[in-house]
């Protein structure tokens, strides 16, 4: 039996019909074809499914769709303003923080939430904040540099 769940998804208010056992990840990827939110473990250990729920970073494999009732949900597809990338996205592209890119949407969402909370983080704070996101390609260095650059860009904007 599906239930109706109202939410604001990528700035659009809508009511979605969901099975009570669906995770947000399942809803986004398989029902709404928002495949920018990735799937890597379904156990909360890789971070590739990270999205924003009311501005906070959430691993969408660990949250039921029904729990998002009344919430504002943002996925990687909803981060840019039209063609204009979010400063975190721009920094990831420019600093070489993206190789295979499978981890990138999750990192970008996690970093966006983190910088909103801590606009001037130290390198160590960045490292700790991103602990829940795995990247096997980059060795993380360029991701740290990108987050630092994004922090600067957000300050200026």
């Amino acid at each position: 039996m599906k239930i109706s769940v109202p939410m604001v998804l990528n700035s659009r208010a809508q009511t979605l019909e969901v099975e009570p056992y669906w995770t947000l990840q399942r809803l986004l990827r398989d029902e709404l074809d928002l495949t920018g939110t990735k799937e890597g473990c379904r156990t909360g250990n890789c971070g590739v499914c990270t999205i924003l729920v009311d501005g906070r970073a959430v691993k969408s494999c660990l949250m039921l769709a029904a729990q998002a009732a009344g919430a504002e949900v943002t996925t990687i597809e909803g981060l840019a303003r039209g063609d204009e990338l979010h400063p975190v996205q721009t920094a990831f592209v420019e600093y070489g923080a993206i190789q295979c890119g499978y981890c990138s949407p999750g990192f970008i969402m996690a970093a966006t939430a983190f910088l909103a909370e801590n606009p001037r983080p130290s390198r160590d704070e960045i490292k700790d904040a991103l602990e829940g996101n795995l990247c096997r390609c980059t060795g993380y260095i360029k991701i740290f540099e990108a987050v630092e650059a994004a922090a600067g860009a957000l300050q200026r904007s």
Partner: peptide, 17 residues
């Protein structure tokens, strides 16, 4: 810049899954 980095950063790169 990697041509595909932009696609990946916006969630528009389609992987097999």
């Amino acid at each position: 810049l990697k041509q595909d980095a932009y696609l990946k950063a916006t969630g528009n790169a389609a992987y097999a899954g």
